[in-house]
Amino acid sequence: MRAFRALLIREVWSLSVSPFSYVLLGFWFLLNGIFFAYLLASEPIRADVDVLPQYMFGSGVLVWLLLPAFPPLLTLRLFAEEHRLGTLEPLLTAPIRDIEVVLAKYLAACVFFLVFWAGVLLQFVVLGSFGANLDWNLVLSGFYGALMISLLFLATGLWASAWGGNLLFAAAGGAALNFLLLFLPVLFDQQGNPLQGIAHAMNIPDMVDRGFTVGLIDSYALLYFPLLAGLFLFLTWVRLVSRRWVP
């Protein structure tokens, strides 16, 4: 447990002192800021600011384009970069369980990604301070939904990162996987498609647009993301221990 805590702290610390994280963070804030300002300038949104959480935490084109791409950029440093630099060897020969390594790194990425979303939340706070009459329940429930999706996308990113020292693969592979998870079910969730039942159960935009961002929390959506994230963490762990097990 002490090793786990040490690694968690070191990963968060590393993320928070690395210039690359700030570049990512700044870019994220900038794009979200532009999008938010753009929304505020549009008449329908101003007529009803309660739809803002829907656009910022779901529904919005920007969210669906940015969200799958950013977590892998954050997680690529967790394994792939360590592998490339050679810092993985000292880590894995230290007396720490592989599962602790996986969880500590994952949790660190989650903690740091919380900052990403906190920035978006801050945008709402700014708007609120200018007298907008926001329904904070909707804002927070949308925020929560966004965190849930991030949970999954960070896990896939971690998995992609554990495949070796190729940073491009870690980033592009993770993003591609996330895009697949996001859009493939949407594609099949159509009337008359024989796979509709399965696709609907995996339809992430649906869970967000008809769930979190309108204030409806469903136990299935609440468990879908952690379970799937758990699956990818498990695969990351398998990847790590198989290196120790398989001669």
Partner: peptide, 29 residues
């Protein structure tokens, strides 16, 4: 075990002191 790999590298962004304290904690101290 105390192991020194052939081409030892530590995370470049960490300070030496930070790194050693982290490793000591990692090793259960």
């Amino acid at each position: 075990i105390g192991y020194l790999p052939e081409n030892f590298v530590a995370p470049p962004e960490l300070r030496v002191g930070e790194y050693l304290r982290f490793r000591a904690r990692l090793k259960g101290l």
